[in-house]
Design a protein around this nucleic acid. Structure first.
Lengths: 269, 269
DNA sequence: CGTATTCTTGATGGTAATCAAAGCGGGTGG
DNA sequence: CCACCCGCTTTGATTACCATCAAGAATACG
């Protein structure tokens, strides 16, 4: 499972240099750092693996435990009053599931395995322990607070990402976030498999399925990546990051290495 | 300060009935409940009032204290790599400022008074106390966790609100959230003054200033509210809520009580 | 091997951003 | 007290982006 890639550096936002927080990192919840993960693991217990499409818990279910993803992945789906479904989060290995249920005592959304997935359970007694653990800010209690604060901040940056940015920026950010996560987990950041469908991605990013598909097509056409079904190979990470950070010159169409005459014809319309 | 309106009910999401969480409530952070407010107040100390445009702290400043808004209001502004400014939050009385700095130890955005504002400071020692207070989930520590979890959930619902919904829904939700906040603070939920500019609202909601202005015009035209500069009077709360929850019949233009011929002409275009 | 999702591709229209310019305050100084 | 000026707000015209509708292609699954 942990293979050729060494999880070299953990991009904890501790060392925030001049507040250059990159939007390209906010599309997924922050995983736990190594130390945090150990802390959590020490008091958690494995539960039997979840098969694809099976739920860890349903929407509205009473909160019982937190979970940490061991391997596999899940999506959180919130069904609103109009029965419409919204994918509110993807959970990848190392991430904590269920924090958003602490306030109300009920899970605000169903959480569904995208593939065979195994998680660790942190029961109420352990949560108690975590929250009140010891009195140093570095200790377990502080750790818990930090995890929540980070999650909150991340959600907020997510809002920003979606508010002004265009569809290409959103998708690029999402892919980069995935890539970064895989790197941290010791997998290749360049070659990975999407465990979620285009439809899930679109729903999550607030884009139509068709738009996701078209964008992947364009990215591919521009040499940013190669997409074959759910297999993704990132060919130009730097350019993708430039796109995600809004540093790219003019959105999408004009990367100029191809179809310049189409550009000309479009500008005269 | 606390005047004619009695703060009758606190809409804490504790009693979540069948998960019908209304989007119209998520546009602003949840204020503390009465009990929570008392808890926090007990260990906080007043600081000198902040005048309009003055900052409580700058972006990137090291975290020192949490604050609770006593009266007045603030906006949080995040300046990204491209020097663009994003209004990430408005803080109204009863709300906790600074929670998002706990993870990194640095404030992710500057926080600026929109009017003369006074806050209470919760120093590090008190935070310690809050986080580790006593061992019952009902106690101070649990309270702290709940506040954060709620904030997190709210940010998430905010994302949902913005992703698919149209501009009119966003603005209606925002106004309703404001209205609800004023009600809870004991002020009239129907008549209030916006402490923020149209530009701030637009930035916060991801809309152009012009759009905000136009929408307010339309709302007024439809008899939903009366807007005179920054003074707002809500004339039809029910209709506004219907709009915010997507229960309104056809977005905006077709409320049929006026200008039906314009409708006809538009549909033929 | 057939059926059903899932994914891609094209055509069209609506919503809201952008550009442009004209009112409106409201504070400051004459 | 009035006039001026600057920021805020409103209004109009144009355009770009993306959702939607509609097939068709590919892939998964039994």
């Amino acid at each position: 499972m942990t293979s050729q890639y060494k999880a070299s550096r953990f991009a904890t936002p501790r060392d925030m240099p001049e507040q250059t927080y990159r939007l390209s990192n906010v599309c997924l919840p922050a995983p736990l750092s190594m130390g945090e993960l150990e802390t959590f693991s020490a008091i958690s217990r494995q539960v039997s693996p979840l098969r694809k499409r099976h739920t860890l818990f349903e929407q509205g279910e009473a909160f019982r435990s937190l979970y940490i993803v061991r391997c596999g992945s899940l999506k959180q789906v919130y069904r609103d009053i109009t029965r419409e479904e919204h994918v509110t989060q993807f959970y990848l290995p190392g991430e904590v599931v269920g924090l958003d249920a602490l306030s109300s005592g009920f899970h605000p959304g169903a959480t569904i395995a995208l593939e065979t997935t195994s998680v660790c359970e942190i029961g109420p007694e352990s949560i108690e322990e975590l929250a009140h653990g010891d009195r140093t800010e570095r200790g377990v209690g502080g750790c818990f607070l930090r995890v929540m604060s980070r999650a909150m901040h991340q959600e907020r940056m997510m809002v920003r990402l979606f508010l002004n940015r265009t569809s290409d920026v959103r998708l690029a950010s999402f892919l980069l976030a995935l890539s970064g996560r895989f790197r941290q987990q010791g997998y290749s950041p360049f070659c990975f498999r999407l465990s979620m469908s285009r439809s899930d991605i679109g729903n999550y990013l607030g884009l139509a399925v068709e738009t996701v598909s078209r964008l992947l097509g364009r990215f591919q056409h521009l040499g940013l990546l190669t997409a074959k079904g759910r297999e993704i190979r990132i060919d130009d990470l730097e350019a993708l990051a430039a796109l995600a950070d809004g540093r790219s010159r003019h959105s999408i169409w004009d990367t100029a290495d191809e179809a310049p005459e189409r550009l000309a014809s479009m500008s005269t319309h």
